[in-house]
Simulated assay, not measured.
Amino acid sequence: MKDSGSNFNRAHRSTRGAVVVLGLAIALAACGGSDEATSAAAPGAPAGSSSSSAAAGGGVDVAAANTAEEIGQAVADVYVQAFADLAEALADHPDEAVALERMRGVRERHIQDLVALGRKVEALSDADKATVQSAVSRVQSGLQYDPAIKPVYEAYTALHGHYRDAGVMSSNREFNRLFASFNILTQYAFFDLLERQNPEEAERLGL
């Protein structure tokens, strides 16, 4: 499993445009979803904090994204990298408590990168915002089976199966919700959407 994250990092550098939509039964729209699926954000992060350089665990250079096209691509890259980092963090199938703590950490790191990109989105014209949104729409609609990204998809679905079979997904509502919420992380780059769908998170982040 751990090799899946490493393989993605190598493939991602040579196929920057490749992105994935995860077609699980638990999957939600990349730019949508319910409060139920997004309310389990990791606690303790400073409100309004954001990444000003490459993601701590993801390797996406958030600071380098300036044009609408670059920002849209970076949002997609952070989204995909979050799945790769989750697969690596849980590759040894830790027990429920340890897995939940690791998952919170991975999720929060990528939320901070998406919030940093969202601040750039806020400064764009309406036309340029539409360009960013189009990039996210491409994440929703295409390349689910691209060979450069497929190992990440397989690792994520395998993790879901492992914790489902162990009974964690049914017995621990927060674990299930947090795991599913990776599918809609891109909402953190679109503040209007986040404020409508998860006002508590928008307030926590100082948006």
Rank of each mutant, 00 (worst) to 15 (best):
D3R: 10
S4L: 14
S6Q: 13
N9Y: 10
R10N: 13
R13V: 11
S14Y: 09
S14N: 12
T15S: 14
G17F: 03
V20T: 12
V21Y: 13
L22D: 07
L24Q: 10
L28M: 09
L28S: 14
A30N: 12
C31I: 04
E36D: 14
A40R: 12
A41N: 10
P43Y: 05
P43N: 06
G44S: 08
G44V: 05
P46M: 10
S53E: 15
A54F: 01
A56W: 00
G57P: 00
G58C: 11
D61Q: 04
D61P: 05
V62T: 11
A65I: 02
E69W: 02
G72F: 01
Q73W: 04
A76P: 02
D77E: 15
D77F: 00
V78E: 01
V80I: 10
V80A: 11
Q81V: 07
A82N: 08
L86Y: 06
A87E: 01
E88T: 08
L90H: 04
L90S: 06
D92V: 06
D92K: 08
P94Q: 05
A97C: 00
A99E: 04
A99R: 03
R102E: 07
R104K: 15
G105P: 00
V106F: 03
R107D: 06
E108G: 09
E108R: 15
R109K: 09
I111F: 06
I111T: 12
A116W: 04
L117H: 03
R119M: 07
K120Y: 01
E122V: 04
A123K: 14
L124Y: 02
L124G: 03
S125F: 04
V132L: 03
S134Q: 14
V136E: 02
S137N: 13
V139H: 01
Q140K: 06
L143Q: 15
L143I: 00
L143S: 14
L143D: 15
P147H: 08
A148D: 06
A148M: 02
I149D: 01
P151Y: 06
A155G: 08
Y156L: 10
Y156N: 08
Y156M: 12
T157R: 13
T157N: 11
A158T: 15
A158Q: 11
H160I: 11
Y163W: 09
Y163L: 07
Y163D: 03
Y163F: 11
G167I: 05
M169Q: 09
M169W: 13
R173A: 15
E174G: 05
F175E: 05
N176K: 14
R177P: 00
F182Q: 05
F182H: 13
N183S: 15
N183Q: 09
D192K: 07
D192S: 09
L193S: 13
L194T: 13
R196Q: 13
P199M: 07
A202S: 14
R204E: 09
L205T: 06
